[in-house]
Simulated assay, not measured.
Amino acid sequence: MKYFEEWKNTFLTEVGEIANFTVRFFREFFKPKQEFFEFLHQCYGIGYKTLPLVGITAFIMGLVLTIQSRPTLIEFGAESLLPSMVSVSLIREISPVITALICAGKIGSGMGAELGAMRVTEQIDAMEVSGTNPFKYLVVTRVMAAVLMLPVLSSLSNAISLYGGYLGVNLHGHVSWSLYWFQVFNALSYGDVVPALIKTFFFGFAIGIIGCYKGYHSKKGTEGVGRSATSAVIVASLSVFIIDLIAVQISDLLGLT
């Protein structure tokens, strides 16, 4: 019971600190003089350098989902519905969430480790002494880059995974290129595409905020840097699932599912 109370107090304290960190982010974001070139640099690091990993994962994901779904549909004589089923599954849920989890692992840990190393080596303190706003330069740019790049990566992941699905459909049969894409787009609707795209902005924001928070408040030297990177991945991944659950509930209430 004592352990549970300590865990609860620690959890509630951290939630409050993250909320305070988020409020500070919005306050700093609306202040003048945006760090535009640092923002572009972070977009390059988050978007372009993460694309190969996201692309390979998306391709395998679409291919495997198609191959695994075929036997079940054949049992019900519905093999012709395979492109439609795969497209809805990938666009609605699988592709955005898997992309966000990959980014939580790569981007979240990178932010936590990088800012944590800057904190323990007193580089952030030196920036404050020199008159630079380290929060705006280090945190705001990274969070905004994550918010912008997650939807882009998710959209590319959708396209690549659907192409993997096309190859999967043709491994044990033959569906023409035009027929496959006709069935894919015919199965998708506004309620499939738009909510899935909107929630990726929130995925990016959560990953950026948590990664930066963990690194910005890193302690205990190099050991703290490792802990910051690890906890950033865990908390960001959990946040992705929570946001996804909330998004699904909202979509259901609005009748978009």
Score class of each variant (00 low, 15 high):
116 G>L: 05
231 S>G: 09
98 I>N: 11
17 E>W: 10
174 H>A: 13
103 C>L: 12
207 I>D: 08
114 E>W: 01
152 V>I: 14
96 P>T: 00
206 A>F: 02
112 G>I: 01
88 V>H: 04
29 F>S: 14
249 Q>P: 08
143 V>D: 06
69 S>W: 01
46 I>Q: 03
87 S>L: 02
211 G>F: 00
139 V>S: 06
189 S>D: 15
40 L>Q: 09
235 V>S: 03
7 W>C: 06
38 E>K: 12
13 T>Y: 12
160 I>N: 05
4 F>K: 09
186 N>A: 15
225 V>I: 13
166 Y>K: 14
144 M>K: 13
185 F>D: 09
7 W>H: 14
130 S>Q: 04
234 I>A: 09
74 I>D: 11
42 Q>C: 09
155 S>C: 10
23 V>Q: 13
139 V>E: 01
6 E>P: 08
159 A>P: 09
37 F>C: 11
40 L>K: 08
167 L>I: 04
197 L>E: 02
81 L>V: 12
170 N>P: 02
96 P>E: 01
49 K>Q: 10
214 K>Q: 08
95 S>N: 07
192 D>S: 09
256 L>C: 09
184 V>C: 06
171 L>K: 13
12 L>G: 01
141 T>A: 12
114 E>F: 00
33 K>D: 02
140 V>F: 04
227 R>M: 10
126 A>Y: 05
145 A>V: 07
74 I>E: 07
47 G>E: 02
257 T>P: 14
24 R>T: 11
49 K>L: 07
245 L>I: 12
106 K>H: 08
215 G>S: 04
106 K>C: 03
253 L>C: 13
249 Q>S: 12
236 A>R: 03
13 T>G: 15
82 L>N: 02
110 G>A: 06
